[in-house]
């Protein structure tokens, strides 16, 4: 059966990772890059749940995913705070414009 739940989740996970990486590589907007990062983490959580489901340890997988959510939230908060500061100092979120440190 192609449309069983497992296959759908696999497709969604891979798709999310693809979108996230693509978005982070091509976007020049810092905010979009942070969003891409969040997508990637969500995909990782899905991957955990998927693994737990497949090997029958869904409860452990859920606890791992919860922990990931917590740490991920902290990262997101710090990232957004920095983005706000960047916007204030540089007046832009274009990553080319904020690449003053090079060489």
């Amino acid at each position: 059966m192609i449309f069983n739940l497992i296959n759908v989740v696999v497709v969604v996970t891979v798709g999310l990772v693809g979108i996230a990486i693509y978005g982070m590589l091509v976007s020049r907007n810092l905010m979009k890059i942070v969003v891409g990062l969040q997508l990637a983490v969500k995909a990782a959580m899905l991957a955990f749940i998927l693994s737990g489901r497949l090997n029958g340890k869904i409860d452990e997988a859920q606890s791992l995913a919860l922990t990931v959510i917590v740490t991920d939230t902290v990262v997101a908060v710090v990232a957004l705070a920095l983005v706000v500061q960047v916007r204030r100092k540089f007046g832009t979120l274009d990553i080319k414009a904020i690449s003053t440190l090079r060489r």
């Binding site: 982070m24 810092l30 890059i33 942070v34 990062l37 990262v75 710090v78 990232a79 920095l82 983005v83 500061q85 960047v86 100092k89 540089f90 904020i98 690449s99 003053t100 440190l101």
Partner: peptide, 12 residues
């Protein structure tokens, strides 16, 4: 500005 830039790049 430099510290912010370094911070956000490092974070991502």
């Amino acid at each position: 500005p430099g510290a912010l830039e370094a911070g956000i790049k490092y974070l991502v």
